[in-house]
Amino acid sequence: MILYDELLDEQGHVLLPHGTVLTAASIAQLLRHGIESVSVQVAGGAEEPEADLAAVEQRLAHLFRKNDIDDQNDWATGILRRYVEDYRLKRGVEE
């Protein structure tokens, strides 16, 4: 099985990146840490399933919850937020 999306902890840190091959040992490790389910890619599927945009937007809001979009003094975080949003929401990304 291949991990469909990155696996994050409660603070938003990446535990396993997108595309990680899940082995029996890694699945057992996840279970020991209380992780009972993850999203995996469909075997043989050429197309990835459509991302749930509302869930992605909610996750991004959580990750950048300490960033005020209108704060001109925190321009670097604003730029990072825009790049991450564009990537995750597939805006302007050619495949």
Rank of each mutant, 00 (worst) to 15 (best):
Ile2Thr: 08
Leu3Ala: 10
Asp5Ser: 13
Glu6Thr: 00
Leu7Cys: 11
Leu7Ser: 10
Leu8Gly: 00
Leu8Asn: 07
Glu10Asn: 09
Val14Ile: 14
Val14Met: 05
Pro17Gly: 11
Gly19Trp: 03
Gly19Ala: 04
Thr20Cys: 08
Thr20Tyr: 00
Val21Ala: 08
Leu22Asp: 02
Ser26Pro: 00
Ile27Tyr: 02
Ile27His: 05
Gln29Asp: 15
Gln29Lys: 08
Arg32Glu: 12
His33Phe: 02
His33Gln: 14
Gly34Ser: 09
Gly34Thr: 03
Glu36Lys: 07
Val38Glu: 07
Val38Pro: 14
Val38Thr: 07
Gln41Thr: 09
Ala43Thr: 05
Gly44Asp: 04
Gly45Tyr: 09
Ala46His: 04
Glu47Thr: 10
Glu50Ala: 15
Leu53Thr: 11
Leu53His: 04
Ala54Ser: 15
Val56Asn: 05
Gln58Cys: 00
Gln58Ser: 13
Ala61Tyr: 02
His62Lys: 09
Phe64Asn: 01
Phe64His: 02
Arg65Lys: 13
Arg65Met: 06
Arg65Pro: 01
Lys66His: 13
Lys66Arg: 07
Asp68Arg: 12
Ile69Ala: 15
Ile69Ser: 09
Asp70Leu: 10
Asp70Ser: 09
Asp71Gln: 03
Asp71Thr: 04
Asp74Asn: 12
Thr77Glu: 08
Ile79Lys: 11
Arg82Tyr: 06
Arg82Asp: 14
Val84Gln: 04
Glu85Met: 05
Asp86Gly: 07
Tyr87Glu: 10
Arg88Met: 11
Val93Gln: 12
Val93Gly: 01
Glu94Met: 09
